[in-house]
Design a binder for these strands. Structure first.
Lengths: 348, 348
DNA sequence: TTGTAGGCGTTATCAA
DNA sequence: TTGATAACGCCTACAA
């Protein structure tokens, strides 16, 4: 049992075996299988049958080496240990995987915390080792070394989001600023004046975007900015919970709290409930992302929805176009997120 | 811009380039870089420096071909389109990725709905094309063609869960039966007699396991089985919601509802809230999995926690042992899940 | 329509 | 301690 698998690789039939069995050259077998037109219908038929029968499948490594192409795209989850279960990622990966499938590409996934040595290594290995044909970037940072790295290596990539210092690379952005502004307007219409914001880490572009929507919203409503209503979060439920505890303990607590993402807002709900605060009635809470969970909280969570799954698919499509040297219609795309008002920001 | 990337692959330095620059043979360069002992310290030093300087990294495809090893493990998310955002998967993948990293393995991910042609194709391509050295299986089915397929191909794999017809392959199981039994006991102690169960699709082993825990629990409490209290779910929040609506509309509705997983139970919470039922007080609700979300529902959800992240890591460790032909300590491991009692099953 | 042969970039065997 | 050379399995000019 122990050495059960030892020599599995030695035993697979190669194109030579198929050729030999048929008394054909490997050329013909190769061409027959790849659907070239200059092979007799009868021959092709026989080749396909025999290959099938022998259980022959091309060795991908050999093909990759020869074609100088891996038919693989890479994605490194920018996540910290020990673990991280933001539903954003499973949805994003499902989108990447589905779209890659449709183009017969594989998806290589790794995990690395942002801005660590490990992360640099991971990207280097893939790029310089030609492990993948292109890379998808997400959770962009305000100054993102990855963009420069990809460019220096002239390596195909697309990104979900931009950096603050550059946006002239193929990416899809979601207009976080405008999204939060809409939300602010909604809150102001509901009569709120003391509106708090729980941030994401500053390194992320999404923080800059969403926070500027907050500031703009305040300005438009002529509400002076009050720093005590801005608290740091970390995009997790627990971060939101802790921040909310601080905010709600203030002498003059906010009547509305915006989380930088849904997870943060959900942490706020937990804190509010613990403090027996009636969300909706006495405290408005809203998030950003539109994850499924936001539609099953109590009360249902007002949020700004971005189409993560579809973005992932589009990013892959753009990337594969780049890889193939085909034109992509636009350099980048800016999507408008959708404000979804639910009970958590409505009174009574 | 358009053809920007075209020839990127042609331009990377190869081991030949490094050798030429140093007037050494490729053999020496290769051995120096791989840390063989039979190369002069001075030579090695120079080789490493030059390689670094020229930005040389071995082409992985060539290495794979030569070594007959990809240093890659595969995982196919058994998920249905258009999308699926069970947090189980991001946690599982994070575990797979982290552990693979530590062994310098890559993780190849794909997406395929269970028991579809696409799924068979995906596995075949990877196995027969030696795309990966081993495969991780999850969401096992009661009769799982994948197990037989892997065996026929003598391909290394480990699985999260077993099948009903075989468990003599390397896997980690979580004792769902015992978990649910504990939960049942807890519910009975709370005075419940009309306890309902919302199932997972029958094809999954986890359904058989958890449901048998339910039946056992009833038997132990001498509660006769009443089929009207068993309703089909699909492991999603919406499935749980729909099933709960039916259950709670019964002339003699249950006083406790168990979801086959946490997502299902969360759907029940949503339904209960819509019907203004006070969960905890008037209705007990519990799930299975122990996802983060269960700790942020309202009320907090009683659940049976399984260590998904750790299981994923362990599965990878076992798999890599198999790949290396090393002994694995046990053929399979059965873990006991942990009952976590929270407010959703406690009165007052 | 089919076959010959060279090479993709490594690693590994063997000899120097 | 180093080097020449032969694979690994596939694709593709080019020739037949």
């Amino acid at each position: 049992m122990l050495h059960y698998f030892q020599n599995v690789l030695e035993k697979m039939p190669t194109i030579h075996d198929v050729a030999k069995r048929l008394n054909l050259s490997i050329t013909t077998v190769s061409r027959a299988l790849d659907g070239y037109s200059d092979v007799a219908a009868e021959t092709r038929q026989k080749v396909i049958e025999t290959a099938q029968e022998m259980g022959y499948t091309p060795t991908l490594a050999a093909r990759q080496l020869r074609r100088k192409r891996t038919e693989t795209i890479g994605y490194i989850m920018p996540t910290s240990k020990p673990r991280f279960s933001d539903p954003f990622f499973s949805e994003f990966i499902a989108g990447l995987g589905d779209e890659a499938n449709e183009h017969s590409f594989d998806l290589l996934v790794s995990v690395a915390a942002p801005n660590q040595d490990m992360e640099v290594n991971a990207y280097q290995r893939w790029v310089q080792g030609r492990r993948v044909d292109g890379i998808i970037l997400s959770r962009m940072r305000t100054q993102d070394w990855r963009v420069q790295f990809m460019r220096e290596n002239r390596f195909p990539f697309t990104a979900f989001g931009r950096t603050l210092i550059a946006d002239d690379f193929p990416h899809i952005g979601v207009d976080g600023k405008s999204g939060v502004q809409q939300l602010m307007q909604h809150l102001v219409e509901q009569g709120h004046r003391r509106i708090a914001f729980i941030t994401a880490p500053e390194e992320f572009t999404l923080q800059a975007d969403r926070f500027s929507g907050y500031l703009n919203g305040l300005a438009q409503a002529e509400i002076p900015y009050d720093p005590q209503y801005t608290i740091s979060g970390d995009l997790t439920r627990d971060g939101g919970y802790r921040a909310a505890k601080i905010l709600l303990g203030l002498p003059n607590p906010p009547t509305a709290i915006i989380g930088a993402n849904d997870l943060t807002a959900i942490g706020v709900l937990t804190a509010a409930h613990e403090l027996k605060i009636n969300v909706g009635q006495d405290l408005a809470v809203a998030g950003f992302d539109g994850i499924d969970e936001s539609n099953h909280t109590q009360p249902l969570l007002t949020t700004i929805k971005q189409p993560v799954y579809e973005c992932a698919r589009l990013l892959v499509r753009m990337l594969i176009n780049l890889i193939n040297g085909e034109p992509i219609s636009e350099q980048y795309i800016l999507l408008q997120p959708e404000l979804i008002v639910r009970a958590s920001t409505l009174r009574g």
